[in-house]
Design a protein around this nucleic acid. Structure first.
Lengths: 334, 334
DNA sequence: ATTAGCACTCTTTGATGTTGAGTGCCAACT
DNA sequence: AGTTGGCACTCAACATCAAAGAGTGCTAAT
């Protein structure tokens, strides 16, 4: 559909725009990327490319900037190339990992690191998959009919929630319950164990079971849904980017960052399968993110899904971002 | 030091500036607040007040705006007045509290609510005091010499941390350790129990103790230091304020929000004793917050210190902010 | 001590002209 | 047919300038 030369021009415009942030004219493209063609030739091609929806002219006497369609072309071409791992952080990360910090610390740090290194917004998320393994559960009577339930999953994810149960149960009974559940389900895949657990509890602990039905249902709810732990970092850095000088856009993005659920949905949609995924502009149909791109890498392992991502302007440096994300994710699992 | 009339003028300028955000001239003040005086009189007084450091003129032909010194005067005068509780949210809060959500959810929600209601940045923090009560501790072998330690404090605060111990200990031994610690220290004030615990463990569990010395030292560190849980919410709303249209200021504030430790220090300094505290402009000597004020209310109870706060522009609506904070804090403890 | 009057200052706003980058198109060239 | 040089045209960006308006400081009168 596109001639070789047209492709080259589109990619050059994208590359130039990512570098400089300025629209580029036919003269520049001709001089820097296509020595064989005169500016006039490039001009003609550019007019065609604009018609085809790859380039866009902010105003009559300006150069061309890429449309999302052009970015898509560019990103796809990058993805075919072989990528080198990002050199800097291998040592650093393996050290961090060897210190065996707890998961939350690592995730939080990683998101900040991502933000700081790129000036985009770093995202680090982790979710348990269907095969989640329960390590341990504890119930703690807070008073009245309220119980604090703390679940520790394989890999160190901690979920806590208060639940209301239908009777004022003594702490000793709760300890009994926890001990039973732990002995049956600890270290096992929840999905395969829970039915056994249910029937066992029904038989053995009838008196307890009624009161604690809610508690167990809540456990199941948390363990069975893909429950995300999500961290973002580096939001303050995007203010340095020329792309986000407009307060309006800024506000849209920051308010999304504050609504954790929206962000989780966004990240989830972007990481349906393992590997790199780039979502450009309004490909993520989320209001307020029209001018943003999202790059994610994700990986399933050990019953968890880990996602690292970057949210940046459409003209973000995709190549560097992808390589950085891949390196960090690999580092996390070394 | 200030005459009655001078005081009135200063307060009027502050009030007017909080309302409108515009410098106010002698004419306005005379017409709206001091019908008895002509603009010329007000002008003369204003010149004096500027010399005394209460007012400031952005440029020759502009009205006056308040200096931090004037805000201080204003806030002090407010604090003497009796304050009405903020009417709206009493029902709402008691309902939330009656649902017995876990602490983190409540704090996070509160900070967002504060932000949303005021368009400033809401802060909610909680710390354990010296008399912190340990409810329960669990140790979980993650592999190698790494152990995840989960502490649940009175009131539902959860602290987790991975610790390295000096030997590869079996999970059964860790369970033993936890059971022993729980039976001795659970439900008791940590400061009073820990010595008993130490000597007991030294005697009874010699073989374990060496390996777990680090773990217990870590417990002590977390429980003995005033360890803050801190939430902020509503940062995106401040972009609507005319005061923060300047990207530079914005960046300073957002980067402080991202550095949790800086923020904790800031909040801690502001809440040394119970009750309302207002810190205006550079009274908090923190770079980047020169143009901001911080209002906090804090309260000690049940071995915890709870702090609610608002970070806003110097011309924030102190009266409304204080009343809102007081109402919410009271609501949390109802 | 207070006030009216007035000249003065300084920002804000809008109009106007100039510059320069970049285009679109046409005619000439290969 | 594809490519190229030339040229008129467009439009944002910038600077300059004038007018308007808000508010002051000072002085002289009350």
């Amino acid at each position: 559909m596109l001639t070789e030369r047209q492709l080259e021009i589109v990619l050059s415009v994208v590359y130039e725009y990512i570098e400089t942030g300025e629209p580029s004219g036919s003269r520049t493209i001709s001089k820097k990327y296509l020595r064989g063609c005169s500016p006039a030739t490039v001009r003609n091609e550019m007019a065609d490319l604009e018609e085809m929806g790859y380039l866009y002219q902010p105003h009559t006497s300006a150069g061309r900037i890429p449309t999302p369609k052009a970015y898509r072309l560019y990103v796809d071409s990058i993805m075919q190339r072989k990528r080198l791992p990002h050199p800097v952080f291998r040592d650093w990360l393996s050290e961090m990992r060897s210190q065996r910090q707890d998961l939350e610390t690592v995730m939080s740090y990683t998101s900040h690191l991502l933000g700081r290194m790129t000036s985009y917004i770093g995202v680090a998320a982790i979710a348990n998959l269907e095969e989640v393994i329960l390590q341990r559960v504890d119930f703690l009577r807070l008073g009245g009919e309220t119980v604090l339930m703390v679940m520790i999953l394989d890999g160190g994810i901690i979920h806590s929630r208060t639940v209301n149960i239908s009777a004022d149960v003594h702490q000793d009974l709760l300890d009994d319950l926890a001990r039973t559940i732990n002995s049956i389900a600890s270290g096992k895949v929840w999905g395969k164990t829970k039915d056994i657990l249910y029937t066992f509890l029904l038989k053995e602990l009838e008196k307890l079971f009624n009161a604690c039905r809610d508690a167990i249902a809540q456990m199941d709810m948390i363990l069975s849904s893909s429950n995300y732990r999500l961290f973002t970092g580096g939001a303050s850095h995007i203010l340095s980017l020329p792309d986000f000088q407009d307060i309006g856009k800024l506000k849209a993005i920051l308010s999304i960052l504050e609504e954790e659920q929206v962000l989780v949905d966004l990240v989830e949609r972007c990481s349906l399968e393992d590997g790199v995924r780039v979502t450009i502009g309004d490909e993520n149909n989320s209001t307020g993110m029209n001018n943003c791109s999202i790059v994610t890498v994700s990986k399933r392992a050990r019953g968890q899904k880990a996602v690292l991502g970057l949210i940046g302007p459409m003209r973000m440096d995709y190549e560097r971002s992808i390589s950085l994300l891949e390196t960090l994710l690999k580092g996390l699992y070394k």
